[in-house]
């Protein structure tokens, strides 16, 4: 049985809404990527340099990240040689296998949030401008609230016009209080207030928004370090998660973002947003591999519940299922 069949079986036995949602959200991603792989496979009768070069382009077109692509191609070449594969269709199975392997990195990928059973859990959100930090916080507030948790939001983006109001709207929508100061105030001071408030109100979850900042702005990155230090000082072991929000539309710079924000704030996970467009977000594979930061959530739309826990197998399944179903049909027809 091919790798993909096994994966499919494993997943169809546990079909749940989330998987379905994941699939719909990823339809465009999948259509694009897998139909290209299929095109490629159909067009080539033998595996040669041109085949690999085109495969390379498909993967780069998915923003997978240059090094990862090179790595993958090397591995594929090696596998093809080892297995003496002559049929490009077989290569696709190997591609899938390798992509999952790259992501898994030989271990069960941690996609659960580090939520404290007792006491306060503080989650800090970081990232560049316009990736969807505030929206993600709104969605997560909704998620925790509906799990019966007491949630507080910290309006740490005191810089961008309207940012505090934006978070407040989410607070109203989800029925969650927002701790804030005025625009232009010190974000570290806001965090201090928020942590104090969360402790005195016995809140379960504190979600901390921060202003978007480009990672090459040294002073702004230092400000972020300070924000984190304030949280560390007030709650031992906090922040329990530092989530970097990445826009799936972003290209190779997402790697630099992940790296720099990790250096500054010890990022523990990724939220990959805007995956409902045509962008593929393939860079997360490279980030996982090079920086060992796992994806924890993906944003698949603008609604409150359009945030799903990331699952590597489902993700890859979403990327490849069309390709697989098509070949299944083909082989049935052949029979």
């Amino acid at each position: 049985m091919s790798f993909f069949k096994k994966l499919k079986e494993k997943l169809t036995t546990s079909t749940d809404q989330a998987a379905e949602k994941f699939k719909t959200g990823l339809t465009k991603t999948r259509d694009n990527f897998s139909s290209k792989v299929n095109d490629l496979v159909a067009r080539y009768r033998k595996i040669d340099e041109d085949f690999f070069e085109e495969l390379e382009e498909i993967l780069i077109g998915a923003d997978v990240g240059f090094d990862t692509v090179m790595d993958l191609i090397e591995q594929l070449k090696h596998e093809v040689k080892r297995r003496n594969t002559k049929d490009p269709a077989e290569v696709r199975d190997i591609i899938t296998e390798k992509l999952v392997a790259i992501y898994q990195n030989g271990e069960e990928t941690p996609n659960e949030l580090n939520i404290q059973e007792e006491g306060l859990t503080v989650i800090l959100f970081v990232g560049v401008n316009g990736v969807g930090k505030t929206t993600t916080i709104g969605k997560l507030a909704h998620k925790f609230k509906s799990e019966g948790k007491t949630v507080l939001l910290a309006a740490g983006d005191t810089f961008r016009a309207g940012a505090i109001e934006q978070l407040e709207v989410w607070g109203e929508r989800t029925g969650v209080d927002v701790i804030k100061q005025g625009e232009g105030s010190d974000p570290a001071a806001v965090m201090y207030d928020a942590v104090r408030a969360a402790k005195s109100r016995n809140a379960d979850i504190l979600l901390c928004d921060t202003a978007g900042r480009l990672q090459n702005k040294v002073n702004l990155m230092k400000e972020l370090e300070k924000v984190k230090r304030v949280i560390e000082r007030e709650v031992p072991g906090a922040p329990h998660e530092v989530l970097i929000v990445l826009d799936a539309t972003t290209g190779q710079n997402a790697m630099v973002q992940a790296k720099t924000f990790k250096e500054a704030t010890d990022v523990s996970g990724i939220v990959l947003t805007k995956l409902d467009g045509t962008a593929k977000g393939g860079i997360v594979l490279a980030i996982r591999k090079e920086l060992e930061i796992p994806v924890k959530f993906v944003g698949l739309g603008e609604k409150m519940d359009d945030l799903q826990q990331f699952d590597a197998e489902k993700y890859v399944y979403g990327l490849f299922s069309t390709a697989f179903e098509e070949t299944e049909q083909d082989s049935e027809e052949e029979e």
């Binding site: 077109g61 923003d63 826009d247 972003t250 290209g251 045509t278 962008a279 593929k280 860079i283």
Partner: peptide, 12 residues
Amino acid sequence: VDAMTGQDAVNV
């Protein structure tokens, strides 16, 4: 358009 946009820039 965000200058950091990747391959999807052409589609958009």
